[in-house]
Amino acid sequence: MSKLIRLAFISFICTLLLACSKPAFQGTDISQSQIGGGFSLIDHHGQLKTLADYQGKVVVLFFGYTSCPDVCPTTMAELRNTMSELGEAAKDVQVLFISVDPERDTTQLLSQYVPAFHPSFIGLTGNKSQIDAATKNYRAIYQKQGQGNNYLVDHTAGSYLIDRKGNTRVLVNYGAGAATFTHDIQLLLAD
């Protein structure tokens, strides 16, 4: 009987060790999904960028637009707070804001809007087919609502966390807060 108890104890310890070794994200773990992939867009400095350019960093990818009245500035402010909470580790994180409003969001406008939240944040844009390719890879949506210059753009409000190897790992829902971003980014940085 003692042999059986020892085996049960060893099995229990192994189970605990395995459970502890897996990250417990606060956002939705999408590691096993087919969400994510490359893109080819222009950054707010006018340079062509791909996801591969950020390999080695944890990437936070967010689709939005500069005229967004609520979701985008809220998320960008949460990400700014996250960078402060990360301290020195923030140098290993890259926030990418992909505009879904290429009609209005020029590189010049993105260069003013995006770094206003944090100097390391990068705004990306492109033509409609480039943006469509990026949104398709991330299963994100966007749709123009209204006419004239004051239209709105409905868009996916979640943020994607991509590990240092370029694998999409976590979806952080809108409004989750800086603490959720910080927690999950720290897990990816330690991975």
Score class of each variant (00 low, 15 high):
residue 1 M to S: 15
residue 3 K to G: 15
residue 6 R to F: 14
residue 7 L to Y: 15
residue 13 I to S: 06
residue 13 I to F: 13
residue 16 L to M: 12
residue 16 L to D: 04
residue 28 T to V: 15
residue 28 T to A: 14
residue 30 I to E: 12
residue 30 I to T: 11
residue 35 I to K: 09
residue 38 G to L: 09
residue 39 F to D: 10
residue 40 S to G: 09
residue 41 L to N: 04
residue 42 I to V: 15
residue 43 D to M: 00
residue 44 H to Y: 10
residue 45 H to I: 08
residue 51 L to G: 02
residue 53 D to Y: 06
residue 55 Q to W: 05
residue 56 G to E: 02
residue 56 G to T: 01
residue 58 V to R: 00
residue 62 F to P: 08
residue 63 F to M: 06
residue 65 Y to G: 01
residue 66 T to D: 05
residue 67 S to T: 12
residue 67 S to K: 09
residue 67 S to G: 11
residue 71 V to R: 07
residue 71 V to S: 10
residue 74 T to F: 10
residue 74 T to Q: 08
residue 78 E to T: 02
residue 79 L to F: 08
residue 81 N to A: 10
residue 85 E to G: 03
residue 85 E to H: 05
residue 87 G to N: 00
residue 96 L to K: 02
residue 99 S to F: 09
residue 102 P to N: 00
residue 103 E to G: 12
residue 105 D to W: 05
residue 107 T to G: 05
residue 108 Q to G: 04
residue 108 Q to N: 06
residue 109 L to T: 08
residue 109 L to P: 06
residue 110 L to Q: 07
residue 115 P to H: 07
residue 126 G to V: 02
residue 128 K to H: 14
residue 130 Q to I: 00
residue 135 T to H: 05
residue 142 Y to L: 09
residue 143 Q to M: 15
residue 144 K to C: 02
residue 148 G to P: 11
residue 150 N to S: 14
residue 152 L to V: 07
residue 155 H to S: 00
residue 157 A to E: 12
residue 158 G to W: 12
residue 160 Y to R: 02
residue 162 I to G: 03
residue 167 N to T: 14
residue 168 T to L: 03
residue 168 T to K: 02
residue 172 V to L: 05
residue 172 V to Q: 01
residue 172 V to S: 03
residue 174 Y to S: 12
residue 183 H to T: 08
residue 188 L to D: 13
residue 191 D to Y: 12
